[in-house]
Design a protein around this nucleic acid. Structure first.
Lengths: 203, 203
DNA sequence: TAAATAAACAACGTGATGTTCATTATTTGT
DNA sequence: ACAAATAATGAACATCACGTTGTTTATTTA
């Protein structure tokens, strides 16, 4: 029974987080001062420094907290072994978009506009990339079209995040399954066939 | 002969730019103070405010100056009409990578690490996307795999930038032509064939 | 060479940061 | 229920960078 944290600490921390989330959405991270947070949380400015080193520290804590939810959701996605990642990509995309839907206002303030926090995007992309690496399957080496694994992972991760951000920015212009399916089809079969343009085969 | 700008202005502006570029590479944009710039440029801090509103204003001016070079280079790339953008993508990628090679240290400090300036990336991506839209060709509408144009443009732009940044970050792990060719092949034919994995055809 | 103007110099008010310290209030464990 | 522990408050302080306002000096232009 030794390790029970003081109730005051829990209360204070919680109200700081809540105030911070609200303020980020209202005026954007950069414009926030520690005093703003203290006012909103109805605590003394000093008390803030009792719990967080500074504003970036608080931001980091909050981002990690929320992204760990996303990570947990993604980790559960099954890895399809052959062909690599077509259904994996589709499943992960669905999972991500659904998770975002549940926390839309927050994701918006993190990913969109000039107030956006690019660190968040970077952290998110890392989560995606890790999952892609996990689901990687070596190619036949003697294929004439073989490409570098690193290049391909980077390609997939960036394209993935691009679509996600586009989807958030445009307020869900397409349903989740539609985006997931279109995305995985472009990735798999190439944009020529995906876009309905005839492909002449190479020899 | 009325509109000749004072030599002092030209001198001062030039030394401010030079100092700024150096400092950005040395300690990163955020860590720089106006006083730093003034010291390095050997001018009074006041003089800085005679030419730029503030630090972000200077940053913006510098970014636009350097990206306009890139833009000019890209604009010259021919648009291949059919099939859409395969060779366009390859050509643009080559152009971009070559341009970056010529200004590597600067691009590094803009695109890589924690000191990176994400605004720059966004501006760059916009240039790419504009070119892609310009080279766009409508698909056959009744194709079973048809995807949204907006989604596809976003897809291409993000993937493009992802590869570029990956290439800069890893210090040119592959030659320019190799990257360009691999990238355009993934985009065109899909990552399955590009990675050398067998593709079973859809019905 | 005189008028125009850019740059330097000095000073000021502002606002946010992070820290210190004494005091008050609350919680915990016995 | 109470004493000890500790969290939160409030006030103060030094620091730093910002952006602005004058006045004076130096340079450039015509």
């Amino acid at each position: 029974m030794n390790k029970k944290t003081d109730l005051r600490i829990l209360r204070t921390k919680q109200s700081i987080r809540k105030a911070f989330y609200e303020l980020v959405q209202e005026k954007g991270y950069e414009a926030i001062t520690v005093q703003d947070i203290a006012d909103r949380a109805m605590i003394n400015r000093n008390t803030f420094y009792l719990h967080y080193q500074n504003k970036p520290d608080l931001l980091d804590t909050c981002m990690n907290e929320l992204l760990s939810d996303l990570k947990d959701a993604i980790v559960l996605c099954p890895i399809s072994m052959n062909p690599f990642s077509i259904s994996l990509l589709e499943t992960v995309m669905q999972t991500v978009l659904e998770h975002i839907s549940l926390n839309m206002t927050f994701y918006r303030s993190m990913l969109i506009e000039e107030n956006r926090i690019y660190q968040f995007q970077a952290k998110m992309e890392k989560i995606i990339n890790d999952k892609l690496v996990e689901g990687w399957q070596p190619a036949q080496e003697n294929s004439p079209l073989a490409v570098s694994k690193e290049l391909l992972i980077e390609y997939l991760g960036s394209a993935f995040m691009g679509i996600v951000i586009w989807w958030v920015k445009n307020d869900k212009p397409l349903p989740v399954d539609e985006v997931s399916s279109q995305f995985s089809r472009i990735v798999a079969y190439g944009h020529l066939r995906a876009a309905g343009i005839a492909v002449e085969e190479e020899n």
